[in-house]
């Protein structure tokens, strides 16, 4: 009787112990997995998306933006207007300081034009010439190497 009871107990104990072992094994394994999955995912280099970047970015050549012309390009995820002026290549944030429209190049007047409310900006300095914009366009560092136009600081 006593022997039988002890037997049952030890069997129960054995069951419990193996369950516990299984639980701890699962725990260790799942913990390692839930750490390793993000880390490995992180280590695999992603394709450089739209928000990537930094440093100098090649945005085109003087063939794309000939003398007296301007073009809006993307720098990271910000539109930037690059202009080939008589005083050299200049670049400004293309977001109008009035209501946030994207400015454009007016080749006829040789000025930066915001098409929304006719704000005009100086292509050399970004200063407001006419219209409602309250502030000049912030400049973006730009450099020219041979024919290649780079945005961002060297």
């Amino acid at each position: 009787m006593a022997l039988g009871l002890k037997n049952v107990q030890s069997k129960e104990n054995g069951n419990r112990r193996s369950f516990l072992k299984w639980l701890l094994g699962f725990g260790i394994f799942s913990t390692i997995a839930s750490v390793l999955i993000p880390v490995i995912g992180y280590l695999i280099p992603p394709e450089r998306g739209s928000t990537a970047g930094g440093g100098r970015v090649l945005v085109g050549t003087t063939l794309d933006i000939p003398f007296g012309m301007g073009k809006v390009v993307q720098l990271g995820n910000k539109p930037v207007i690059v202009i080939n002026t008589p005083q050299g290549i200049t670049a400004f944030s293309a977001i109008c300081t009035h209501l946030g429209c994207i400015v454009d190049w007016d080749a006829e007047r040789q000025l930066i034009l915001c098409p929304c409310h006719d704000g005009l900006f100086n292509p050399q300095t970004g200063a407001v010439i006419a219209g409602p914009p309250p502030a000049p366009l912030p400049p973006v560092p730009v450099s020219l190497e041979d024919e290649e136009i780079y945005l961002g600081e060297a």
Binding site: I37, P38, V39, G41, Y42, I44, P45, P46, E47, R48, G49, T51, A52, G53, G54, G55, G76, G152, E153
Partner: peptide
């Protein structure tokens, strides 16, 4: 020049970044 964009890159482009 690059710190901000690299953090942006980590946060929005790198998986689990």
């Amino acid at each position: 020049d690059t710190a901000y964009n690299s953090v942006l890159f980590i946060t929005s482009d790198v998986s689990f970044g």
